[in-house]
């Protein structure tokens, strides 16, 4: 499973990568790290990830715009939103645009692994 991590915080990008690498999820391969939506779109034009973890509040291009763009390019792409925006409206908006899951920040290691496993289970 090819994973792209999108978050404007370098600490969070590293944390998601570290937990993912340690998770023992089979065939999980991090193909890129992006600090905003523009970088994510550029990466997805070159290689198609199976799963994208997507922050929402980011400079240049935010997560909501990025989800719309990525789903436009690859309608079957799995997008897991990982965001601090914890209101119902935002979650519904992201899901309506095509995101397949929503994990609230702050998250524990186990919560992230469980969320990733859902996607791996769906892919297998």
């Amino acid at each position: 499973m090819k994973l792209l991590i999108v978050d404007d915080s370098s600490v969070i990008r590293s944390r998601i990568a570290r937990i993912s690498n340690e998770s023992r999820l089979s065939n999980l391969n991090i193909i890129g790290l992006a600090k905003n939506g523009n970088e994510a779109v550029r990466i997805c034009k070159v290689m198609q990830p199976d799963l994208v973890t997507m922050d929402l509040t980011m400079p240049e291009m935010d997560g909501v715009s990025c989800i719309a763009e990525l789903i436009g390019m690859h309608p079957d792409m799995n997008i897991l939103v990982i965001s601090a925006l914890s209101d119902r409206t935002t979650a519904l908006q992201a899901l309506k645009l095509g995101a397949r899951g929503f994990l609230n920040k702050p998250f524990s290691d186990k919560q992230l692994i469980d969320a990733l496993m859902e996607f791996q289970g769906a892919k297998e």
């Binding site: 601090a84 914890s86 209101d87 609230n104």
Partner: peptide
């Protein structure tokens, strides 16, 4: 700071 502010939307709304 981002997480505290974002989480507050659960109470204050979008």
């Amino acid at each position: 700071a981002n997480t505290i502010a974002g989480n507050a939307r659960k109470h204050f709304g979008a």
